[in-house]
């Protein structure tokens, strides 16, 4: 369990997924990828849990149910993301006018 802050980067222990925290709730939260806790990049020698194997897509934002946690996938992988056991969902892309 760790307290997260915006800008924090985490790596999957079981696949190539890397994320950056965009928004985090107060207090401790554990983010997992492929069923294993994410950290600073050390692999745990394990494999992606088949129950957490939907994969991550680069550039997609993932959020928890109440939207208090938002992360950005900066490197894709085979595992899927969860926070405190609940799967994170892909956030819909915004439609924005081009400004520059």
């Amino acid at each position: 369990m760790t307290t997260l802050s915006a800008g924090k980067r985490l790596k999957s222990a079981v696949c190539s997924t890397e994320i950056m925290v965009i928004a985090a709730p107060d207090g401790d939260v554990e983010i997992t990828c492929g069923g294993s806790p994410m950290g600073d990049g050390a692999t745990n020698g394990g494999a992606v849990d088949p129950g957490h194997a939907e994969g991550t897509a680069i550039g997609k934002r993932y959020v928890n149910a109440d939207g208090s946690l938002e992360v950005l996938c900066v490197k894709a992988g085979e595992g899927s993301l969860a926070a405190d056991g609940d799967a994170l969902a892909v956030k819909d892309a915004k439609k924005l006018p081009k400004t520059d």
């Binding site: 915006a6 965009i22 550039g59």
Partner: peptide
């Protein structure tokens, strides 16, 4: 970096 990255995240969708 946090200002610049925040601007990009607020205004651009990756790979759009």
């Amino acid at each position: 970096h946090k200002h610049l990255v925040s601007y990009i995240f607020n205004s651009v969708e990756f790979g759009a």
